[in-house]
Simulated scan of single mutants.
Amino acid sequence: MTTAWRCDGDGTGQQLTVDLAGKTKIGEVGLVPGYAKTDVRSGTDRYAENDRITRVRWVFDDGTTVEQTFDPAPSNRSMQSMRIPVTKAQKVVVEVLDSERGDRNTIAVSELRIGAVAR
């Protein structure tokens, strides 16, 4: 959680693409839907200050798509995961569909989870 993907605006339509090392059985996905940081100098809670993702679409290169919703409460900066029907993919795209506005008009993903299934 020392880094994050960020962009200006509410993020609608923005995509993150993850290329895995090879075809992988995936049974769980999730992310931390905001900038889960506290400014070390000022103590400002950046998670509460920035926009927070409320809905994404996961797209797998085998054609499977899954939508996930998130709790955008500033107090819930944890990994929000969900189990999905097992799919096998090498490329995973996460598309931001909706977000909740914060004081700053930027969106972030602090952590991303793609859970492999044991063989």
Rank of each mutant, 00 (worst) to 15 (best):
S78E: 15
R46V: 14
V86W: 05
K91A: 13
A116H: 07
T3F: 10
R104F: 14
G13S: 09
S78L: 10
L16A: 08
M82P: 04
G9S: 11
E28K: 05
G63I: 07
R55E: 15
S110F: 08
Q14V: 13
R113V: 13
V59K: 08
P33R: 00
V32A: 00
D98F: 09
R104P: 11
G9L: 10
D98K: 05
I84V: 15
N105A: 13
V59C: 10
K91P: 14
P74L: 02
R46E: 15
T38W: 04
V86I: 15
M79G: 07
E100N: 08
R113Q: 13
I107S: 05
V109G: 02
E28Y: 03
A108K: 01
V117E: 09
P33Y: 01
V117I: 07
I84H: 02
G30N: 02
L31A: 03
V94P: 04
I53V: 13
Q14Y: 13
T65L: 03
T106S: 13
F70W: 03
M82R: 06
T65H: 04
I53Q: 01
V96S: 03
I84C: 08
S42W: 08
Y35K: 02
G27E: 05
V18L: 07
D103L: 11
P85K: 02
I84W: 04
I26Q: 00
Y35P: 02
R57D: 12
L112K: 01
S99P: 13
V56Q: 02
D103G: 11
T2V: 12
T65I: 09
S99W: 03
R55A: 13
A48Q: 06
V40Y: 08
K91R: 15
R6Q: 14
G22C: 08
A73T: 14
I84L: 06
S110M: 05
E28L: 07
S78H: 10
V40A: 10
A118C: 07
S75P: 06
V94N: 01
R119P: 14
I107V: 15
V117C: 03
E111V: 05
G11E: 02
R77V: 05
P74I: 01
V117G: 03
E95A: 12
T44S: 07
R57L: 12
L97W: 07
R83V: 15
R41I: 14
G27Y: 02
D45H: 05
A89G: 12
T64W: 03
A108D: 07
V59N: 08
D19H: 11
R55D: 12
R83G: 15
D39K: 02
Q68A: 09
G27N: 04
N105V: 12
V92Y: 00
L31F: 03
Q80K: 01
G27M: 00
R52F: 11
V40Q: 05
Q68M: 10
Y35T: 00
